[in-house]
Design a protein around this nucleic acid. Sequence first.
DNA 1: GAAGATTGATTGTTCAATCTTA
DNA 2: TAAGATTGAACAATCAATCTTC
Lengths: 162, 162
Amino acid sequence: LTAGIVRSVSDQLPALKLRAWRGFLEAHSSITRELERELREERGLPLSWYDVLVQLNEAGGEMRMHRLASSLLLSRSATTRFVERLERAGLLVRDGAPDDRRGTVVRLTDQGMDTLRRAAGVHLRGVKRHFGDIISNEDAELLVRLMTKLAPPPSGEGASYS
Amino acid sequence: LTAGIVRSVSDQLPALKLRAWRGFLEAHSSITRELERELREERGLPLSWYDVLVQLNEAGGEMRMHRLASSLLLSRSATTRFVERLERAGLLVRDGAPDDRRGTVVRLTDQGMDTLRRAAGVHLRGVKRHFGDIISNEDAELLVRLMTKLAPPPSGEGASYS
DNA sequence: GAAGATTGATTGTTCAATCTTA
DNA sequence: TAAGATTGAACAATCAATCTTC
């Protein structure tokens, strides 16, 4: 049954490269799943919440809604509701933009900053354990080079989960 | 404000490895997003549906529900509803398992097999363009080695999006 | 009692439509 | 007319509870 598909696979993609691709997917999935689990268990924080806090912090503590939406790779409506939840939890606040009255500025609160600090330890420990400690410095250099080739350098950010 | 965080980052994770980690996330995100877009535009098929078809095909055309759930990294209830949708679309059917009357077997239909064949071309072309063509054979060998170290080889499958 | 699967309630994401300001 | 943001309706994923069979 699968002969046709198998043939078309190897015509287009050498087995070696297909194995590399699948390994890439497996590694991504297993590492992020583990990071998600650890952060949720030890800090009660979803990785997606942590990512919002990181983005805001790296932007200097505040950000416009549409900019946040594009860094998170979320639609605007999803971002609105997402931000609502974090605001209800006291991690950030929304305010009208000073220069453009259509706009909204999202700002990290002290509590949000504190939550970020406490979460960062857990998260970075996880990235170290599940990624950094496993690869050598030479591997890391190579990955930087490879990943830069694979990710479109011009266009915007991306879901970081830094 | 961020001094404490920045310090704790570099204590745990050398800057080089952190850059490798972020590159890894960016590359994964941008490639899978593009593959999703292409498959949806050219075949009207979500990547997650394609993944179900691939899993079933690689398992010889049929699979038990709980096994499918674990290959897809979905909960059982999510898998039930997911399979319902694909069944409504005519891509697969459900039947009682012959040996265990608690169980359900999911089986690819001819239409499902046909959809898989037509989707595979588009998808594999994408993996080739956005991944295979960009890396050398040496890079691929290295990635296989690295990704195998990063993904726990013993435990189960993973979301493939093959 | 435990495993396999489904259903109900809750939560989260999206698209399309809407409202306000530029 | 378009950009920024929010709201309503539809869809998808999860947990807990349930039902059947082992």
